[in-house]
C-alpha cells in the first residue's frame, strides 16, 4: 500500500468517514447507506479471540443485508441507548489495480449513553465507554466531484465483552 500525501484525497476520505459516522450516531440509517456503494459495499465486525486463538467474525453483511437490518430494527425489543462513534482517521493508502481505491484506518471509540437498557431511573443519562477498535475502510474517490463512497468497512474490535451486545452496527 502506498501512503497518500495528496491533501485533497485525504480531505475527501476523512470527510466521508466522519460524515458517515455522524449519520450512524444520528441513527440516520439511510443517510449512512448513502455513503456506501450499493453494489459492492461489504460490512464486517471482526476481532481476534485469545480465548480460542482465532480471528472471528461477529457480523458480515452486504448493502442489502444492512438495509434489511436497519429496516427491521423497530420490530425488535432493544436497548435504545444511543451510541456515539468517535473515529479518527490515522492512515491512508492507495490500493486497487489502478491505485484508484483508498484504504483508510481510523481509530474508533464507541460510547453508550444509557436510556432504557438497565435501571432507567438510576442510570439513564450516564455515558460509558462501550468499545474500542478500528475502522478499516476501502473507498473509491472521485476527485472531480470531490466525493467518495465506502466499498467496504471492517470494524476490528479490541473490546470483546460488549455487555448484552448491540442490535445496531458500530
Amino acid at each position: 500500500m502506498k501512503r497518500i500525501v495528496d491533501p485533497q484525497t485525504r480531505q475527501i476520505v476523512a470527510d466521508t468517514i466522519y460524515d458517515s459516522s455522524l449519520a450512524l450516531n444520528d441513527e440516520d440509517w439511510n443517510g449512512f447507506l448513502g455513503f456506501c456503494d450499493n453494489g459492492s459495499f461489504h460490512y464486517r465486525i471482526v476481532n481476534y479471540s485469545p480465548e480460542i486463538r482465532k480471528e472471528q467474525c461477529w457480523m458480515d453483511r452486504d448493502w442489502k443485508g444492512m438495509k434489511s437490518l436497519f429496516d427491521l430494527l423497530p420490530k425488535h425489543n432493544s436497548n435504545h441507548s444511543p451510541l456515539t462513534r468517535h473515529a479518527t482517521v490515522q492512515r491512508l493508502g492507495h490500493d486497487g489495480a489502478d491505485g484508484d481505491e483508498v484504504l483508510a484506518t481510523s481509530l474508533l471509540t464507541v460510547y453508550r449513553t444509557q436510556l432504557d437498557g438497565m435501571n432507567s431511573h438510576f442510570e439513564s443519562g450516564q455515558t460509558i465507554l462501550f468499545a474500542v477498535g478500528k475502522y478499516e475502510d476501502r473507498l473509491r474517490v472521485d476527485l472531480e466531484s470531490g466525493s467518495a463512497v465506502l466499498l467496504s468497512r471492517d470494524v476490528k474490535l479490541d473490546t470483546r465483552q460488549i455487555d448484552v451486545g448491540s442490535h445496531i452496527p458500530f
Binding site: 427491521l72 425488535h76 425489543n77 432493544s78 436497548n79 451486545g165 448491540s166 442490535h167
Partner: peptide, 10 residues
C-alpha cells in the same frame, strides 16, 4: 450483534 441474544439478555 445478532437479533435474539440481546433481547434475551435485556
Amino acid at each position: 450483534f445478532g437479533r435474539n441474544l440481546i433481547e434475551d439478555l435485556l
